[in-house]
Write a protein that binds this DNA or RNA. Structure first.
Lengths: 194, 194
DNA sequence: GTCTATAGACCGATAGAC
DNA sequence: GTCTATCGGTCTATAGAC
C-alpha cells in the first residue's frame, strides 16, 4: 500500500474511533508510520486528508445497502439488512461524523455525509415500497417515513449500546423494530379466522 | 447566579454544542466571563467541571420522562412523549456524550450517561407494559425491546437530522415509529368485520 | 475568591535541504 | 517524495500575589 493510501486508511480508522476534532495529524503519522514531510506532501491540511478518508469510509459502508435491492422477497431483504451483523460498540463510520460540529460546519465534509444518508434512505424506501406493493406490509404504512424510522433505529441503537458499553440495547432495539414491522403485515384470511 | 453556577451552566451548554473533547476551559471562561483563577478555584480540572455539567444536563432532561407515567392512557402517554417538541438539530444533551471517546473512557462520566439511559428505559418499558396490559398493544410485543426501539428512533433521528441539516428526517422517523406502533394495536371486533 | 504570570506539551502548518 | 527544523498559537493546568 502506498503512502497516500496508508494515510487515508489510517485517518479513516481514526475518524471512526475518535472523530474529527479529537484526531491530530500527528496521531495519523504515528499510527501509519508516515513522516511529516510526506503527510503534507500528499495532503495540504488535516481537513483535506479527512475529506479523502471520509469518502473512503462512505465507499466502504454504502455497498452493503445493495442487498436491500437484491434477490428475495422485499420484506426478507429488509429484515436481513436490519439484522445484519454489526459491531454495535464501534458505531457507524458515517453517522458518527454528524456529532462533530467541525464536520457539520464544513459544507464539503457535510455533503459527503448527507449524500450517503440520502442514498441509504433511497434504498430503504425502495425496498419498503416493494414490500407494500407485494402485500407484505399494510398499505397504510408510508415507506419514506418508515425508511427514516429503521435508519434511526440503527443509528440510535449504536448510541444506546455505547451508553451502556454493551451491544445488548442495540440488539434489542432492532429486534423490537422487527417485531413492530411484522405487526404491520396485513391481516391474512387465516389470521382473521384463527 | 454565582460563579460556580455560571461555570456549570456554560460548560453544560458547550458540552451540548461542541462535546467534551472540543471544548476548552478557555472557551468556558470567555463565554461565562469567569476568570482563570476562579475557574480552577471551583473546579480542579476540565474533567471535574464536565462531570458537574453533565449531571446538570441529565437533571435537565430526565424529569420530562415522568410524563410517561403520568395521567392518560398508556398508549396516549407514549405517543405524546414520542411526539414531544424537540429541537432535532440540537440533538440530545445526554446521548451526544456517547460519541466522545474521552467520555466513554472515563468510568465516572460514562456512569452518569449510562444510568440516565437506564432510567429512561425503565420509564419507557413501564408505559409499554401498561399499554400491553390495557390491551392497547398486542400481547406479543416485548415492552423491553420496544422501549429500546423507541429510544433509538429518537437518538437516531437526531443523527439523520444533523446529517441533512434539516429536522425533517427526525420528524419522519418518529411519525414512522408511531405508525408502526399503531399497527401493533390488537385487532378489534370492528376491524375484523369491516 | 479572583487576579496575572508562567509552564510544558501539543496543535496544525510551513520551510527548505536532500 | 521524504526528511528535519521551526513557527505561532492553543491546551490544561500550576504558582503565588492580592
Amino acid at each position: 500500500m502506498g503512502t497516500r493510501e496508508r494515510l487515508v486508511q489510517t485517518m479513516s480508522d481514526l475518524l471512526w474511533e475518535r472523530g474529527y476534532a479529537d484526531t491530530s495529524p500527528r496521531e495519523v503519522r504515528e499510527r501509519s508510520g508516515v513522516g511529516q514531510g510526506s503527510q503534507y506532501h500528499h495532503f495540504a491540511s488535516k481537513r483535506d486528508l479527512a475529506l479523502a478518508a471520509l469518502r473512503h469510509n462512505v465507499d466502504d459502508v454504502l455497498p452493503a445497502a445493495d442487498s436491500l435491492s437484491g434477490p428475495g422477497s422485499p420484506l426478507a431483504r429488509i429484515e436481513a439488512y436490519l439484522l445484519r451483523p454489526r459491531d454495535a460498540l464501534r458505531g457507524c463510520k458515517v453517522g458518527r461524523m454528524t456529532q462533530d460540529p467541525q464536520v457539520r460546519e464544513d459544507p464539503e465534509l457535510l455533503a459527503v455525509v448527507s449524500s450517503a444518508f440520502t442514498a441509504m434512505h433511497t434504498q430503504w424506501a425502495h425496498a419498503l415500497t416493494e414490500a407494500v406493493t407485494a402485500g407484505e406490509l399494510r398499505s397504510d404504512i408510508d415507506p419514506e417515513q418508515v425508511a427514516h424510522t429503521l435508519m434511526a433505529v440503527l443509528q440510535g441503537g449504536y448510541v444506546l449500546a455505547m451508553a451502556q458499553g454493551d451491544p445488548a440495547p442495540f440488539e434489542q432495539a432492532r429486534q423490537g423494530a422487527l417485531s413492530l414491522l411484522r405487526a404491520a403485515a396485513p391481516q391474512t384470511p387465516e389470521s382473521l379466522t384463527k
